[in-house]
């Protein structure tokens, strides 16, 4: 049992919770994730670790309420418990001093990008971050990202804050203006990661993406998270979650992520119909 110690709403449907998990807090590294299971009937869902505090024995996750599991997670109050939290899982990010790094992130992906950007900054890199969202009120971790970035740019699809358009457009603009990047990270919705990869590819900037494939165990057993990278099948949980953006088959990833949309909808309807009890 893992107790919820803190809970915040960062934006509509985007929540942050701190969980007591001392063993994981001691071992976590940037780029890793945990698998959560809410209760006996719950599914196993992967969520990226955003922060961890070994002294306090606490980890932080941020999630968007999109399915029954994240709705249940969002409904938890401080003091309530999550049945299972397994981790840290996945390979940590490869952090060294690369020089100048662009951290391009969008939506709730910003939560996954933040610890990596922070580690890159601590390793001596110049961090230029580009943070995006559909609209201003969905922007998260703005202050946190600003603190660890040498420069930060914001973009919103509707132009309510920062540049109007996509994060990939901002990156292209910066490169054209003469910004030099030794490495880029792109973390967010697959469409955004694909667009960013396309930009950096044309400028030959090495780019890493962190993939959010569907997972069941998250430990290499099911292969649900398989993704084609450079023509080979890889498991996001075991070989990733980070891969070379220029050789990831994003079209396949996007299709695989849609596999259970109708079941998710059915489950949410049932969940909402009876206030979360799912008695049917």
């Amino acid at each position: 049992m893992y107790e919820v110690l803190e809970k915040l709403e960062l934006a509509p449907k985007i929540k942050l919770i701190e969980i007591k998990a001392p063993e994981i807090a001691k071992k976590a590294k940037a780029g890793q994730f945990v698998i959560l299971r809410m209760d006996e009937k719950g599914e196993r869902i992967p969520l990226t670790l955003v922060e961890w505090n070994p002294e306090k024995g606490m980890i932080t996750i941020i999630f968007q309420e999109v399915g029954v599991s994240t709705l249940k997670l969002g409904a938890l109050e401080i003091g309530e418990v999550i049945l299972d939290v397994a981790g840290p899982l996945g390979n940590p990010s490869d952090i060294e001093n690369f020089g100048s790094v662009a951290v391009v992130c969008g939506g709730v992906g910003t939560a996954a990008a933040y610890p990596i950007a922070k580690a890159l900054k601590e390793a001596g890199n110049k961090v230029i971050s580009i943070v995006g969202a559909r609209t201003e009120e969905l922007l998260i971790l703005e202050d946190e990202m600003k603190k660890i970035s040498d420069e930060m740019f914001i973009s919103t699809d509707d132009g309510s804050k920062g540049h109007k358009g996509f994060v990939s457009d901002v990156l292209k603009m910066l490169i054209e203006k003469g910004y030099h990047f030794d490495l880029a990270y792109a973390i967010g919705p697959p469409v955004m990661m694909r667009a960013t990869a396309n930009v950096t590819k044309s400028y030959s900037i090495k780019t890493i993406v962190s993939l959010n494939s569907i997972m069941v165990d998250g430990m290499g057993m099911c292969g649900a998270c398989r993704v084609t990278v450079g023509g080979e099948t890889k498991f996001a949980c075991l070989d990733g979650p980070e891969f070379d953006a220029h050789i990831v088959n994003f079209d396949e990833l996007i299709k695989r992520l849609r596999a259970y949309l109708s079941e998710e909808k059915q489950a949410i309807e049932l969940y909402e119909k009876c206030g979360g009890c799912k008695c049917g």
Partner: peptide, 10 residues
């Protein structure tokens, strides 16, 4: 036992 249990299968 989906949707009583949360994990789907198709």
């Amino acid at each position: 036992m989906f949707p009583e249990y949360d994990t789907p299968i198709r």
